[in-house]
Design a protein around this nucleic acid. Structure first.
Lengths: 94, 94
DNA sequence: TGTTAATATAACAATATTGCTATGCTTCAT
DNA sequence: ATGAAGCATAGCAATATTGTTATATTAACA
């Protein structure tokens, strides 16, 4: 994720207002980052990914925004368009 | 996943009809399995998970069916209700 | 400067998922 | 056999996500 990013985050998370907002948005950020990185690895344009997914460039742009949160179906299509594999798992928290 | 399961699967996947159907349903199966295992680990009933998620037992049952595919928001809530952490990632396929 | 490629945003109808209520099915114990 | 606990299913209204079209923005470059 990058060192600077995590340092800054730890600092901001001390603020409880920020923490609340962040936790609301966190899943959208995380998904957005993952999608953007996956497409970067593939070297494809949004247009090209869109074609492979059977949708449009604007829909791909929206997916990469992370808002609204994409469906699993969309994530799967995006993954296979970008030569990735989608992994979803529940790991014990404690 | 279990040894028997994978053996049987490899055998059935030779059939192209089956393979097509399986690939359609695979995400639902996978999600269902993950949810069921997560709740089993937690030792909670559907009712209890439902309460923690702010929903009803029947909704939890439906999530564990995997159909329709749950939203990421639901998976997140389910994860925290069952003391799990939801992981979603794209891994390079090649 | 003007053109092109790549990405972003908006609006609205269509589709998918959730909340909710009611009800059915099993299993276990009494 | 009856009751209770846990899980499954169904139907419908409410909410969320996607498909689509149109348009804006930005950067690179002839």
């Amino acid at each position: 994720m990058g060192k600077k990013f995590n340092e800054k985050k730890r600092e901001l998370m001390k603020n409880s207002e920020f923490r609340k907002e962040y936790n609301n948005l966190e899943p959208e950020f995380t998904i957005a980052r993952a999608l953007i990185e996956a497409r970067a690895r593939s070297g494809l344009t949004q247009q090209e990914v869109a074609k492979k997914m059977g949708t449009t460039q604007s829909a791909v742009a929206r997916l990469e925004r992370g808002h609204p949160l994409p469906s699993i179906t969309s994530l799967k299509k995006f993954a296979s368009a970008t030569n990735s594999k989608l992994n979803i798992s529940f790991v014990p928290a404690n």
